[in-house]
Design a protein around this nucleic acid. Structure first.
Lengths: 124, 124
DNA sequence: GCGGCATTCAACCAATTGGTTGACAAACGC
DNA sequence: GCGTTTGTCAACCAATTGGTTGAATGCCGC
């Protein structure tokens, strides 16, 4: 169920460089909040907040191990983004190729009269 | 190459559902600001602002045609995101498979002897 | 060159965001 | 139990964001 709400959160979550870095590091393996926070100049609470944003986006999950809360990257959500991106990129590319064909065609029957089709638009 | 700044802007730009919708519609072909704004309940200026955000992210470009400013989708920027996403997804997946292998190995050791392919060599 | 169309700029407002510090909670180690 | 470690919750602050309305700007048609 790819509801736009989650896509909102996923994109928003990755718009922050610190959070992207967290994801990058988590791709190498699970880690605790403390471990994750260590390299940054900000407070532990700030990192905890970032992790909450990532969690709400479904990008990470947290379990419990004694007093630690190991953070785990949930890679499936990436597919949601990739699908969205690829869908429109493909569509744009196909359109581009059709346009190319149209231009070639126009050059072809250059003297055939007719207007230089501004083509009907996307306006529904 | 690695301009995190642009990645910031691209992800942030797509975090808004209105802007994602604009991109989706632009994938079907160029359009003017007025055409783009029509379906939404918000003011034209608001849409113009959204387009500026998309433009700053490098996702669209605007040319000039009389008093219109046709908006064009720049699909290449998608690659930037896709690369980033795929990189870490792959890394996470590889790690996951290694973990699987380790767990299988442990189970194997558990009953004392022999090595068997967990589910046939899926290493990489 | 004047009026109208398409778009942007400017000022403003409410809500959200990323950061802070301080207090609290849960699970050891002893 | 008692203190320590690990992490979250709460209140607050400055900056940013998405929206508004009203005033430019740029270009066409006449």
């Amino acid at each position: 169920m790819a509801r736009p709400e989650q896509l909102d959160r996923v994109f928003a979550a990755l718009a922050d460089p610190t959070r992207r870095d967290l994801v990058a590091r988590l791709a190498g393996g699970d880690a605790t909040v403390g471990e994750l926070a260590a390299p940054y100049a900000v407070s532990l609470q700030a990192v905890s907040k970032h992790l909450k944003v990532l969690e709400d986006a479904g990008l990470v999950s947290r379990s419990r191990d004694a007093q630690r809360r190991p953070v785990h990257l949930e890679a499936e959500v990436f597919d949601l983004m990739t699908k969205w991106i690829e869908r429109y990129r493909r569509q744009a590319e196909e359109r581009y190729q059709r346009l190319d064909a149209v231009l070639a065609q126009m050059q072809d029957d250059d003297r055939g009269a007719g207007r230089a089709a501004p083509d009907e638009g996307a306006a529904s």
